[in-house]
Design a protein around this nucleic acid. Structure first.
Lengths: 254, 254
DNA sequence: CTCAGGCGTTGCGTATTCTGCAACGACCAT
DNA sequence: ATGGTCGTTGCAGAATACGCAACGCCTGAG
């Protein structure tokens, strides 16, 4: 709606692909160099882009800080975290927490036990929406027309032979998930990885988040993982209870 | 430099404090509601802000994705990661990698301690710049005038009794660090946590990153931690060598 | 049930702001 | 030395964003 801002913001995903110099930015925006320069300068002042020593631009530090703060302000995350930790202690596997937003599903927390390597590296990354167990739960709760519309505009990459192949299959799976109140991903994303997931609901019963337990089948078979379902559901329900119990409003500025 | 973009971007840190409605945003920007609306809409189209069910705005999902991609494109991080992992395997403690950018020092990678004691730090979070060992190394390498200017504009929070108290002391410490080529933080941030850090240098000898090993003194004493210094330095040097060896330019678009 | 107040939204005329041009200076490689 | 590339600047014109005022919606009070 605002041309200038629109152009400026278009620079960000462009730089996300890698550093670029002024000319490249101007070209890909379809504007004059001087225009691109002014936009980049403004972005720079706000710390969103950084100018490295070779004069090329790349995404800047404040972006991390913003994403960080944004995440910390999600109260579902705050409430859920101790539960995720406890669940991880009980079963030993990787635990994820995810939310739906604007046609995307993304992890907002993760507890890993065996290889704590890259603890936060995948948080914030959009998940494989057509196969992930958490995605199924979150999408299954969307109003029917929206769900259908989304399902049909999605791509269905065949990560493995067990990936959801097309919209029709996906909608059918969502219906099942919606009914049973939990979801799985059995090798749909990576051949050897299975997941079980359960929904976290708000006071009105709508699904506000989903949590999952993931494990490679060299550690536990799919059946063994499924046996954890009651535990996962109990944990999710506990989070739901706490989340809908009270709404701690703390962001009251002076 | 560009008013419109400037205003739009000013909304982001504002929303980072917590969700806000249209009126609040307009007020704090000092613009008319209709203007604020237009800006928010543009931000929304780019996924940088999200409109929650109560109509208030908060930071959006794409912010995470961007921060994510930005991080993955830092090649120092990519090169250093396996070394961090190996170092962690050798000593068992938490290993951090940090860079300096625009008056801030921030962690860009982390390998968790194998000991159950966890330390609060997050990738992307700005570090306690006046006390952290990695910060000392990165700032010590700045050109003298810049270093001095920065040191004097900083705040010096007294996290503990051993925190750096003021600019003068900090500059003195930086001089020492600069000379010896490594740094420590002995309880300057949290009473019981000690760190040893070493610099990663580019081909031109400038410090491009810093890595540290941190451990609570209930696990190892400061002296024991210091005995790891040669190992830490060797690892940092190995990263430096690999980093300055070649400059893999991969971001060449079609 | 009515009405006032608050909030988000829209269309529009004005003028502020952004744009593209062209020229300059720095730097690199030939 | 010199041609080329790249980032930077000032400027005049015009497209663009701004603020205004009015509308519709919802909520809560009388």
């Amino acid at each position: 709606m605002s041309q200038t801002v629109d152009r400026a913001l278009s620079i960000l995903p462009l730089l996300a692909e890698g550093p670029a110099d002024l000319g490249q930015v101007a070209d890909r925006l379809g504007v004059h160099k001087s225009t691109a320069l002014r936009l980049l300068r403004t972005l720079h002042e706000h710390g969103l882009v950084y100018r490295q020593s070779d004069q090329r631009y790349r995404l800047g530090a404040r972006l991390f800080a913003l994403a960080q703060e944004a995440m910390e302000n999600l109260d579902i995350r705050e409430i859920a975290h101790p539960h995720l930790v406890r669940l991880n202690e009980q079963c030993g596997h990787t635990v994820h927490l995810a939310v739906y937003e604007e046609n995307e599903v993304l992890y907002i927390d993760k507890v890993e036990s065996r290889y704590p390597v890259r603890m936060y590296s995948r948080i914030g990354k959009p998940v494989a929406i057509t196969v992930a167990a958490v995605a199924k739960l979150l999408l299954a709760d969307l109003p029917e027309p929206e769900r259908r519309a989304l399902a049909e505009q999605l791509d269905y990459p065949l990560y493995t032979a067990r990936s959801t192949p097309h919209a029709e299959a996906f909608l059918k799976e969502l219906a099942t998930v919606r009914e049973q109140g939990w979801a799985t991903d059995l090798g749909g994303h990576e051949e050897s990885i299975n997941c079980v997931a359960a929904p976290v609901r708000g006071a009105d019963g709508r699904v506000v988040a989903a949590m999952s337990v993931s494990a490679p089948n060299v550690v536990v078979t799919a059946e063994e993982l499924l046996s954890l379902l009651p535990l996962v559901r109990r944990t999710a329900d506990a989070i739901s209870g706490e989340y809908s119990g009270r709404t701690p409003v703390k962001g009251t500025p002076a």
